[in-house]
């Protein structure tokens, strides 16, 4: 997708559904939008078929606001709850086979670089703990070792929520689930440690308690992946159905888990840090120049 595709054919404006007209007129394409502006612009995703109170939906909704260039972004997902939202977002979505998302993303990113040499295209993998840490583990690790330039976002609900509550590698030790009645026998996988070992340029762990932080983390991860190397965001997105969290208590649970074992954490390489500082300075210089030209005029 590019901004050129977002033009309604002359004469069809009155026939287009309101949703699409809003996307064209008030969408987040080609401009920066902030979480604090929610409600004033048309979001990439609004309606979705997820369970009431789903923390994953809140995370995805906010994460999509953080994308620095949604009109030049492709998202990859796989089987699981997350793809139900992602496939409805007004952004290209590729449904990878279970396990191959990071392999597909590697090829896609390289292909896009060849096809669009003058336009940066961002690739973001957004999949569950089962898709990335269990079944897709091999492709995830190898994409990191190969230093593929795209972002991997794990929607960590610590269970196979879509298929009835089987334990995943990211489930905590001892956790009893519908399809794990004796409790999990092994520790939660240390994907953050594995990412560090693989030399991932930017690693973040967070819970969906602060919308602005989610958007900022995603923005940083996508920008660093453009220039420096692979980035990894691991987000706690509880499954209130399989973990029997009452809907009104979902955010309370997120805050408790954040305090207990899922605190915000960022690991950033020196190269990535320097890159972020550079683009921040460029942004400030550009804003200054615009302000100066306005004052001059």
């Amino acid at each position: 997708m590019s901004l050129d595709t977002l033009k309604i054919s002359p004469g069809f404006e009155s026939y287009m559904p309101k949703e699409y007209v809003d996307l064209v007129e008030r969408g987040p394409y080609g401009r920066d939008v902030k979480v604090s502006e929610m409600g004033t612009f048309k979001e990439i995703i609004e309606e979705h078929p997820m369970c009431a109170g789903c923390a994953m939906t809140l995370f995805i909704r906010t994460a999509l606001i953080g994308l620095p260039a949604p009109e030049h972004t492709v998202i990859l997902g796989t089987a699981g709850c997350g793809r139900l939202v992602l496939s409805q977002a007004s952004i290209p979505f590729i449904y990878g086979n279970y396990g191959d998302t990071n392999g597909v993303a590697s090829g896609l990113k390289r292909g896009l670089e060849i096809r669009f040499p003058n336009q940066t295209k961002d690739v973001v993998v957004m999949a569950g703990d089962g898709g990335l840490a269990d079944i897709g583990f091999s492709c995830v690790m190898h994409s990191w070792f190969r230093k593929e330039k795209f972002t991997t976002v794990m929607l960590d609900n610590e269970v196979y929520g879509n298929t009835g509550g089987q334990e995943s590698g990211m489930t905590n030790k001892g956790m009893v689930l519908k399809m794990a009645p004796f409790g999990k026998k092994f520790e939660k996988m240390d994907m953050i440690g594995l990412a560090k070992t693989a030399g991932v340029a930017y690693i973040a762990r967070l819970a969906p308690t602060n919308p602005t932080r989610i958007a900022n983390v995603i923005r940083k991860a996508v920008l660093i992946a453009r220039e420096v190397g692979p980035t990894y965001v691991q987000a706690y997105t509880s499954c209130n159905i399989e973990y029997a969290i009452p809907t009104p208590k979902v955010m309370d649970d997120a805050r408790e888990v954040e305090k207990d074992r899922y605190g915000f954490m960022e690991i950033i390489s020196d190269e990535a840090k320097a890159y972020l500082e550079r683009i921040e300075q460029e942004k400030k210089a550009k804003a200054k120049a615009v302000a100066a030209s306005k004052a001059g005029a």
Binding site: D4, T5, L6, I8, S9, F12, M16
Partner: peptide, 8 residues
Amino acid sequence: GPLVVWGW
């Protein structure tokens, strides 16, 4: 369809 309504 999209090949008509989007005039890119």
